[in-house]
């Protein structure tokens, strides 16, 4: 029951983040450095799916650390792009 609530809450956040990123994209200049905010929000979406939808928050710490490592890599690449 608790997991159901976490997943529903994650889903609602994911929807809001997607819509938020869309409007950020519309309002920020195409080559603006503020686009790094899009990178951070996109990685938050990645984390919600990885940790909650895929159930990694219940798994061994190795899989959690691997998730954080992937997010770190994406943030580094994303920041370089923005």
């Amino acid at each position: 029951m608790k997991t159901n609530k976490i997943n529903t809450f994650s889903f609602i956040i994911l929807i809001f983040l997607t819509i938020g990123i869309f409007f950020l994209d519309r309002n920020l200049a195409p080559a603006s450095e503020s686009r790094s905010l899009i990178v951070l929000l996109s990685n938050l979406k990645f984390a919600l799916i990885y940790f909650f939808f895929m159930g990694i928050f219940q798994a061994h710490i190795f899989w959690k650390l691997l998730g954080f490592f992937i997010i770190l890599l994406q943030v580094v690449f994303g920041m370089a792009l923005s």
């Binding site: 686009r35 979406k45 799916i49």
Partner: peptide, 20 residues
């Protein structure tokens, strides 16, 4: 989890290709 993987891949390529 395979279906969620499709979602994860999209979360990687969507911002890079479309937004940044």
């Amino acid at each position: 989890n395979y279906w969620h993987l499709c979602d994860l891949i999209w979360m990687i390529i969507f911002p890079v290709i479309y937004l940044l």
